[in-house]
Design a protein around this nucleic acid. Structure first.
Lengths: 302, 302
DNA sequence: AGCATTGATACCCGGCTGGTATCGATCCGC
DNA sequence: GCGGATCGATACCAGCCGGGTATCAATGCT
């Protein structure tokens, strides 16, 4: 199976229309039909049901669509990583969301820099699910992510620490007088609908709350009394003066983890991960002494 | 980048010899040289250093070798999974090592069978690291694996439970009188060298102990007084009468986990994983009440 | 019934992949 | 130091295959 065939197949599977897919691919329709037929013949599998008016995926076609997208992504990532390795740029690129786990990041970088074999680390701060895309696409070497917010599927990961969540409110809001709240207390605030984050594909779920992509937008809208949000409690370290936070006792815990692409043979990534694991519990105990010992995972299989 | 080019590149990178690689690929040497040159030109990257007497990989070439192997594996897996999906065989294939976590497997299968949308599950028992190969290669849908013994890199996983390890000895061996031992006590047994398991690539590390691939071989050799081994304590459930086990207090804990290929869109796999998570802690508490609560992971990101 | 839509087929062309022959450079043995 | 052996690169040729245009066949809509 050649990547060209996979590209053709994915285009048709996404359009469910040979002519449109051909146009998208920049070729004519007949060669595309032939390529798909050849692929089906060689696999010995029907990928589409054609009724001359409608094209639908077979069960096998659905499987190949998911697999094919992954393969094409892996090919593109392989090209980028190869080209990055060739530029002589020996440094690592670490991506994370802006404003999250800032202290942890600082400690990890310091711990890694003290390693004898340390290389330069470029830190890229990005919004929403961009880090996932960059790591998957081969533009980054390692990422700090947060379960359950980010999808770590297909990455190798190590858990660094786990923390509770808090609701962020305008200073002086009635709820800020409480020592703690429950999720239902927050969703019951009709005047402060919960902010909406984008899904990994960039679309926003329906709802009354504001659409946000980063903490700056979010904090501004909360300060204006337009929205509210539930976030990992480590955001308290840099909270604006005009905002207040209250622990949400029944919110699911947030796990900060370090992720890297599988098959990474990079010594530098392995060293950075070890440095992160070494300093994570200390960082945690300073942030929230009561939670120490909950987080340290053991996922190394390299 | 076409998969043909990748196959060619990987062959040359592995042989570090154009003529031998061409022979392995079943083509002549000149087209192979041309294909590699073309790949380098299109990527804008030197993959090999050629000195007309020796071929070596550049840094970029090493990266592409690791990435390329992964991509080719993913392509082969995509083909197999597609073909499996087309046969109408709706069942799942679950692979695990023979003789390990037998009770857990039984409970997981029972819990899953009770699901309304359950499909048939073929259980494949294999040796050593075969399960990893089967899952990676697309011949299996889901696997039970053991950290740190198996490599889960590139898979999505959920931890089921964690347990301690025991040393297996011939009944009546002096050490069996002890309530517990340390790893050093076991390695100090000059007459009972530790058994050697194969590495993922099938080779055995050097050492005096017997080379084994499964529990039947292993137990026989231990009963004969030829070797010993440290195993997860759940093996006690089916231990032969002529063998005895002693807890090893400083051995690293063993985590049993359920693993599946990323990008799996299969509803059946997701359902089976949920069933496994649901019944894992119960199983644990029956095996070892004292360890309850240690194991349950929370790695879902699907 | 007639037309529009859409995928499949027929046929041709050009480029690319693969083959053979050969060159050029390097290493090794005498 | 020289000749032969080794090995990758280059030159050149042939056949296949990918891509294009024209057209057909089947279906659905008016």
């Amino acid at each position: 199976m050649e990547t060209r065939e996979l590209r053709y197949f994915v285009a048709v599977a996404e359009e469910l229309h040979f002519s449109r897919a051909a146009e998208r691919l920049g070729i004519a329709q007949p060669p595309l039909s032939r390529a798909i037929s050849g692929l089906e013949r060689r696999l010995g599998v029907a990928l589409f049901e054609r009724t001359s008016r409608a094209v639908t995926l077979t069960e096998a076609g659905s499987v190949l669509l998911a697999e094919g997208r992954a393969v094409l992504g892996a090919v593109a990532a392989a090209e980028r990583r190869t080209q990055r390795a060739a530029t002589g740029r020996t440094g690592l690129v670490l991506v994370t969301k802006a404003g999250v786990a800032g202290d942890l990041l600082k400690k990890v970088l310091a711990a890694y820099a003290a390693e004898p074999d340390a290389v330069d680390v470029d830190v890229v701060l990005c919004e929403a699910h961009e880090q996932e895309r960059l790591l998957r696409g081969g533009q980054a070497d390692v990422a700090l992510m947060h379960r359950p917010y980010d999808s770590t599927t297909g990455f190798d990961t190590e858990e660094l620490f786990t923390e509770g969540q808090v609701v962020i409110l305008p200073a002086g809001h009635p709820l800020t007088a409480r020592s703690h709240v429950r999720t239902a207390d927050v969703t019951a605030l009709a005047d402060l609908p919960m902010a909406r984050w984008p899904a990994p594909d960039g679309t926003y779920p329906d709802g009354p709350g504001a659409e946000v992509r980063n903490l700056t937008q979010l904090y501004q809208l909360i300060a204006l009394g337009r929205t509210t949000v539930i976030l990992a409690e480590s955001c308290l370290a840099h909270l604006r003066q005009d905002l207040a936070a209250v622990p949400v006792v029944d919110a699911p815990p947030v796990t900060t983890l370090i992720a890297w692409p599988p098959h990474s043979r990079s010594r530098a990534v392995a060293s950075l991960v070890r440095a992160a694991l070494r300093c994570a519990p200390d960082d945690l105990s300073e942030l929230r002494p009561g939670l120490a010992g909950r987080g340290r995972g053991s996922r190394s299989s390299r």
